[in-house]
Write a protein that binds this DNA or RNA. Sequence first.
DNA 1: TAGATTGTTAATCGATTAACAATC
DNA 2: TAGATTGTTAATCGATTAACAATC
Lengths: 214, 214
Amino acid sequence: MEEREISKAVVKRLPLYYRYLGDLLEQKVERISSNELSHQMKVTASQIRQDLNNFGGFGQQGYGYNVKYLYNEIGKILGLDKTYNMIIIGAGNLGQALANYVKFEKRGFRIIGIFDVNPRLSGVAVRGIPILMTDTLPQFLEENSIHIAALTLPKNGAEEVAPVLVEHGVKAIWNFAHTDLNLPDHIVVESVHLSESLMQLSYNLNCANKNEEE
Amino acid sequence: MEEREISKAVVKRLPLYYRYLGDLLEQKVERISSNELSHQMKVTASQIRQDLNNFGGFGQQGYGYNVKYLYNEIGKILGLDKTYNMIIIGAGNLGQALANYVKFEKRGFRIIGIFDVNPRLSGVAVRGIPILMTDTLPQFLEENSIHIAALTLPKNGAEEVAPVLVEHGVKAIWNFAHTDLNLPDHIVVESVHLSESLMQLSYNLNCANKNEEE
DNA sequence: TAGATTGTTAATCGATTAACAATC
DNA sequence: TAGATTGTTAATCGATTAACAATC
């Protein structure tokens, strides 16, 4: 009831606050004002205070914000106080890169299986996580409660496997395939489109050149 | 002079238009109206027309847009009609994943070197691209004109190597490290922050659950 | 020509910034 | 207490949507 709808722009900044606060924590900084933080992050102090007040009053007048407290609170807002079972579909370089990234584990994202269609990968393990064959996926999903599936396989494969995942109770999909998955509204889809990111870079690169020429 | 400042929101949608038009092209669709396209892409027709008209009038009243023509024009706007020399710094799974992704090559992004500090990787090649030692990087940059560098190495390494790249004429950085690089304004930085993407997913996942409970 | 659909202006909506009273 | 800084309201800015005249 008290929940207002939080805009995407705000949600996108939350992990950023979390990262900067984590850095400050490492540097043993105890407290910080919205003004100081705004200089470091290159956003406005006003925006920081507005963003945070969507979720409650975490600061104190005349003092600012306690770094450790705010860090933990944002962690909770992001759901990092919980643990999630995650699988990776597609054991190529990208899938293996995700599997090897140990920091996810620390934040509560437990990778418990990697799936691929290539029989040569059967039985191989990445950082102790077994690579399983995709045809055993439905059974695996029945036997294990999986919250998140990362799709690191080509477009067609991703479009095929996504409905299977949803059907077996997967709630969120981290999509690296070059397609917008068409799934029911209650499924959370977060996409990372690498080639689109590279195209934005190339657009900006050409812009920059153009401006120089003028 | 005729250039107005294009907003980030528009630039972000350009690769998306490009992808959808590419799909239509494959399906041999010859022409499309903003209205039809808006249904497929789940944006408003108004937005499509507004976005495109930032760059010129590509359509025709009563007809719509010619798919092939519009696809090519957007490609040009994105700078995909040019070729770029690219290097990858960090030959871990993620760096190798990028090196193996052949579609970049097709779009004009030629990966001509991969760098790493691990001497065991010296002499190894990925898809024919040699892995070189990072201490040879400055010399390599002098001998080759590099437009883009992808940083697929840990934060500290990225922060160290970025100024070296800039000093030797690299114009754009595709940053996968968990840091906001502090570089001169004329350097184009496009960042892909995977853990921040995963945190957004986890936020949305918890939101969705909360709404269900109500 | 009549119908369709763009290009573009005007209206609306939402997000960011500024300002300041509340208060630690 | 005086100074600092938040929480929050109001003002501004920008992006999205609606509407429609222009025109193919």
